[in-house]
Amino acid sequence: MSEHEQQDFATPDEVREFPHGRMDLVRIGGAEIGRLTLQPGWRWSADVRPIAGTDLCEAPHFQYHVSGVLRVRTADGTEFDALPGQVTALPSGHDAWVVGDEPVVVVDWWGVSTYAQASS
C-alpha cells in the first residue's frame, strides 16, 4: 500500500437496507468491511432469507460485536449468544436473531460482499 486510506461508516460506499436492519459497507485497502445494525425483532430467516434466496445464511462472517445480543444457530444445531466485546467466526449455514430490546451492531470483516443480496 503506497498511500494511506481512511473511511467512515457515517459516509459508507454502499448501504443495503432490509426489514429491521441495514448494512453500511466501506471499501478500503482492497477489502470490504460492513457495519450491520439489526433492530429488535430482526431475524435472518425472516428478514434476509427472502433476499438471499437460501435456507440459511451462506455468508461466512468474522465479526466484532459492538452492542446488543445476537443469538446464532448453526446448521448442525449449535446455538449460542454473541455478546458485546466478543469476536465470532461463523461458518456458512446459520440463522441468527436479535435477543432483547437493544439493537445489535456488529462490524464484519468477512462475508459482507454478498450479504443481503440475491444469490446467483
Rank of each mutant, 00 (worst) to 15 (best):
residue 14 E to G: 02
residue 56 L to C: 04
residue 36 L to M: 15
residue 20 H to I: 01
residue 20 H to E: 09
residue 32 E to L: 08
residue 35 R to E: 02
residue 70 L to I: 03
residue 32 E to H: 06
residue 115 Y to G: 00
residue 29 G to I: 04
residue 98 V to I: 03
residue 27 R to S: 05
residue 111 G to Y: 01
residue 107 V to A: 00
residue 53 G to Q: 11
residue 61 H to M: 07
residue 93 G to N: 08
residue 52 A to T: 13
residue 50 P to C: 08
residue 26 V to L: 04
residue 71 R to H: 01
residue 15 V to Y: 05
residue 32 E to W: 02
residue 47 D to G: 04
residue 66 V to G: 00
residue 10 A to Q: 13
residue 24 D to R: 15
residue 39 Q to T: 06
residue 91 P to I: 06
residue 70 L to D: 07
residue 62 F to G: 07
residue 68 G to F: 02
residue 51 I to L: 12
residue 120 S to C: 06
residue 61 H to N: 12
residue 120 S to Y: 07
residue 115 Y to K: 00
residue 3 E to R: 12
residue 89 A to F: 05
residue 70 L to C: 11
residue 73 R to T: 15
residue 55 D to S: 14
residue 4 H to R: 13
residue 93 G to R: 07
residue 119 S to W: 08
residue 4 H to L: 12
residue 104 V to F: 03
residue 97 W to T: 08
residue 87 V to I: 12
residue 101 D to L: 11
residue 61 H to S: 10
residue 22 R to F: 05
residue 58 E to T: 05
residue 15 V to W: 12
residue 10 A to K: 15
residue 20 H to R: 14
residue 73 R to E: 08
residue 103 P to Q: 12
residue 71 R to Y: 02
residue 67 S to F: 00
residue 54 T to N: 06
residue 18 F to M: 13
residue 84 P to T: 04
residue 29 G to Q: 09
residue 99 V to G: 04
residue 97 W to H: 14
residue 92 S to D: 10
residue 119 S to Y: 09
residue 1 M to V: 11
residue 85 G to C: 08
residue 10 A to D: 14
residue 113 S to T: 12
residue 68 G to T: 11
residue 32 E to F: 00
residue 3 E to A: 04
residue 108 D to Y: 01
residue 49 R to N: 03
residue 24 D to H: 08
residue 60 P to N: 09
residue 40 P to S: 05
residue 64 Y to E: 00
residue 21 G to K: 08
residue 72 V to W: 01
residue 74 T to V: 10
residue 28 I to A: 14
residue 102 E to H: 07
residue 29 G to H: 13
residue 9 F to E: 09
residue 53 G to Y: 04
residue 81 D to N: 13
residue 55 D to K: 15
residue 80 F to G: 04
residue 33 I to L: 11
residue 44 W to G: 04
residue 55 D to E: 15
residue 63 Q to D: 07
residue 69 V to M: 09
residue 62 F to E: 08
residue 17 E to A: 14
residue 114 T to D: 13
residue 100 G to E: 03
residue 49 R to T: 07
residue 105 V to Q: 05
residue 31 A to N: 14
residue 26 V to A: 04
residue 89 A to T: 11
residue 38 L to V: 00
residue 1 M to R: 10
residue 12 P to S: 10
residue 100 G to M: 06
residue 82 A to Y: 00
residue 39 Q to I: 02
residue 65 H to Y: 10
residue 48 V to C: 15
residue 13 D to N: 15
residue 115 Y to C: 01
residue 26 V to G: 02
residue 61 H to Q: 14
residue 78 T to D: 02
residue 60 P to T: 04
residue 98 V to M: 00
residue 27 R to E: 07
residue 76 D to M: 11
residue 71 R to A: 01
residue 84 P to R: 08
residue 5 E to H: 11
residue 45 S to M: 07
residue 109 W to C: 05
residue 103 P to W: 10
residue 30 G to H: 10
residue 21 G to N: 12
residue 73 R to Y: 00
residue 115 Y to N: 00
residue 113 S to F: 02
residue 21 G to D: 11
residue 41 G to A: 07
residue 95 D to V: 07
residue 98 V to T: 02
residue 33 I to K: 08
residue 18 F to G: 09
residue 14 E to Q: 13
residue 53 G to E: 11
residue 107 V to G: 02
residue 79 E to P: 05
residue 87 V to G: 03
